[in-house]
Design a protein around this nucleic acid. Structure first.
Lengths: 311, 311
DNA sequence: CCTGGCCACAACCAACGGTTGTACTCATAG
DNA sequence: CTATGAGTACAACCGTTGGTTGTGGCCAGG
C-alpha cells in the first residue's frame, strides 16, 4: 500500500468525485481512477460506487476512511519526528521502564499537546555528543565519568534519586525479609546481566561494589528482562538489583519479591542534561515541569557515588 | 512514502543488517540498500550508520522507528476493517454525537479488545439492506417506516430512549425557563436544518409535529452544527431540538441554553437491529453489554411515535 | 433529444524498482 | 602481514508500474 494512493482515496472521498480530487492532487482524472481501482484490487473490496455524477463511498469505504485518516496522521507524525527544525522534543534515557520513563509519562500527561520522542543511547558520552550536536534535546542520565566535569555548554539538574531494591525468588535466603541492609548483602551473589561495561551505569555499580564490598556478576548474555526474572525466580542463590520505580511485566506465580535496601539505601541519581543554548520551547516546559514535580526528596540515609552532580 | 519501504526499514532495524532483512523480505541485499537510501533521501536524514559488519540506527532512526511501527499497526487495522470474514464489528448509527455513539463508547470502554467500526448510512431502509447483506453487523436506529413490520430475519431491541431538549439562544423568549411543556412550544419556530426528508429521523419529527401541533422548519442547507449553533445563539425567534446526550463543541460565550421538555417528554427511541443469523462473536457481546447497562429506563411521561417497536 | 459532466478503457511512454555483477571496507584468523 | 568472510554501495540492465493523452459510455437536466 502506498500513502499517495491512500491520500488519493481520502481526497476522492471528501470531494465525492474523482475529477475534483484529481484537480486537488494535480493529476489527471484517469490517474485517480487507476489509483482507486488498484487500491480496490489490492483490498479485494469496492470502495466507491461510481455514478455519472461522481463517486460515493460504499459501506466498506466508509469503514475504511477513518482508519486511513489515522494512517495519514501517523505518517505525518513519523515524518515530523525526523524533520530538521521544529521537531518533537527528543529525550534520551537509559532504558524504558525506569524512573526517567515515569517522569516523561508524567510530563506527557501534564502536557499532552507536546510531541515527544524517546531514544536510548549507549552511554553518557554518546548522549553528551548528541546534545551538543543537537541530535537530542535532553538526556536523563547519572552524570558520570568520575573526575571529568561536564562541559561548560551543558547544563544539568538532578531530578530524581531512585532507590534500588533487591529482587529475589521465593527460595532465596533473604526472600522473607521485609528489608535488608547493604551489609547483609555481602557474600550474596547479585546478578545483573544487563550491565554494559564502559557506561556510566556500569560505573555506578562499580562504585557500589567498591564501597560496600558486594559481589555483582555481570557475566553472561542478556536475554532480556523476561529471562532474567525467570532465572531469579528459579535460582535460590541469585538476586538482582532493580529500581524502585521499574515497571516489569510481573510474571504471575513466580513468587518474586522486591525487598527495600537500607543503611544506606543506594539510590540511582537521575539528572536531566541539556544544552545551554537549545532553543526548543518544549525543553523549557519540561524543565519547569520537573522542577515543579520532582522536588522534595529525602537524601538522609541514601548513598550515591561522589562523582555525580550534587542535588 | 511506501509501506513496503517502511517495512524494509523496520526489518533492517530489527536485524541490524541489510543482508538478513533482505532474506526475511525475500529480496536481494541491494534492493534493501536502495529502498533505505530512497527513504533517507525522501526524509532528508540518515537513518542508519553503515559499518562493514552491518547497519545500526542513527539517533534519527531511533526516533523514527516507533512511529513507523505504529504506522504499520494502523495500516494493518485499516486493511482488517475491510477484510471479508473476521473483520471488526461494524455498526451503523444515525450520527456521531448522539446517544448511540455514547453507548458504543461505553461498550468500547468495557471491551477495549474488540475492534469496532462505525458507519453512518442514509436511513433505516439502507441499514436493513446492509444488515441483510452482511455489510454491517448492527444498526442503532429508531425502527420506523410506519405500518411496515420488520422482516422476519431481523431482530431488534429497544436500547435507549433519549429525551429531547430545547436549545435556545440567550435572547429567546423561553431562554430563562427551567423547563418547558410541549404545549408551550406551539407557536414557537423550531429550526432543524439537519433533517433529511425520507428518513426515519424525519418521520419521527413529522409525527411529533402532527401530535402536538408544533412548527418545525427543516428548510435551508445544513452547514453543520457549528453554523446551526451560531444561528440559534444569535436569533431570538429560533430554537432547535437536540438529544439530551448529544455532545456538542459548545461555543463559549454564546449563552446557549439546553431546556428540558415535559408533559410529555419526547424521547427518541434508539433500537439495536441485527440479523438473526449473524455469527460475529462481538455482536453477542454487544447485545449482552447493552442488555446489562441500558436497562431500567422510565417510560412514564414520555412520548414516542406509536410505530416504533415496543420497549 | 441534445448537451454537459463524469468515469472507464486503451495506447503510449517515462521512471521507478528489482536483479545480477562487482568493488570496497573492515574484522578476524592463520 | 595476508587471506578470507561478511557486509554494504555502485553500475548496468530490464520489466513493471503508474503517469498522460485520447476516446467512448452513461445518465441527469434543460
Amino acid at each position: 500500500m502506498d500513502l499517495d494512493t491512500v491520500r488519493t482515496f481520502v481526497a476522492a472521498a471528501d470531494a465525492g468525485q474523482f475529477q475534483q480530487a484529481a484537480a486537488e492532487l494535480a493529476v489527471t482524472q484517469q490517474a485517480v481512477s487507476k489509483r482507486i481501482a488498484a487500491l480496490e484490487r489490492n483490498l479485494g473490496v469496492r470502495l466507491f460506487t461510481r455514478t455519472p455524477r461522481g463517486a460515493e463511498l460504499t459501506i466498506d469505504g466508509q469503514a475504511f476512511l477513518p482508519h486511513v485518516r489515522e494512517l495519514l496522521r501517523v505518517a505525518e507524525r513519523a515524518v515530523a519526528s525526523v524533520r530538521t527544525g521544529r521537531r518533537p522534543l527528543r529525550v534520551d534515557m537509559i532504558a524504558s521502564r525506569t524512573a526517567a520513563s515515569g517522569l516523561m509519562r508524567g510530563f506527557h500527561r501534564a502536557h499532552p499537546e507536546i510531541e515527544l520522542d524517546v531514544v536510548m543511547l549507549f552511554d553518557i558520552e554518546t548522549a553528551l555528543a548528541a546534545i551538543r550536536s543537537g541530535a537530542i534535546d535532553a538526556s536523563f542520565r547519572a552524570v558520570a565519568v568520575p573526575g571529568r566535569p561536564l562541559p561548560e555548554d551543558i547544563e544539568s539538574v538532578r531530578v530524581l534519586d531512585e532507590p534500588l531494591q533487591l529482587l529475589t525468588g521465593p527460595a532465596h535466603a533473604l526472600a522473607s525479609a521485609r528489608s535488608v541492609t547493604v551489609a547483609q548483602l555481602a557474600g550474596h551473589r547479585i546478578w545483573m546481566p544487563g550491565i554494559v561495561p564502559g557506561t556510566e551505569w556500569a560505573a555506578y555499580y562499580d562504585d557500589l561494589v567498591a564501597e560496600f564490598g558486594l559481589t555483582i556478576e555481570a557475566t553472561g548474555p542478556n536475554f532480556g528482562s523476561d529471562a532474567l526474572l525467570d532465572t531469579i525466580a528459579d535460582t535460590p542463590a541469585l538476586a538482582t538489583f532493580m529500581g524502585e520505580q521499574t515497571r516489569l511485566v510481573w510474571p504471575a506465580g513466580h513468587g518474586l519479591r522486591r525487598i527495600p535496601v537500607t543503611d544506606p539505601t543506594p539510590v540511582y541519581p537521575h539528572s536531566l542534561l541539556w544544552h545551554r543554548d537549545n532553543p526548543h520551547p518544549a525543553l523549557a516546559t519540561l524543565r519547569a515541569h520537573l522542577a515543579a514535580t520532582a522536588a522534595g526528596h529525602d537524601a538522609v540515609g541514601t548513598w550515591a557515588p561522589d562523582w555525580v552532580i550534587p542535588r
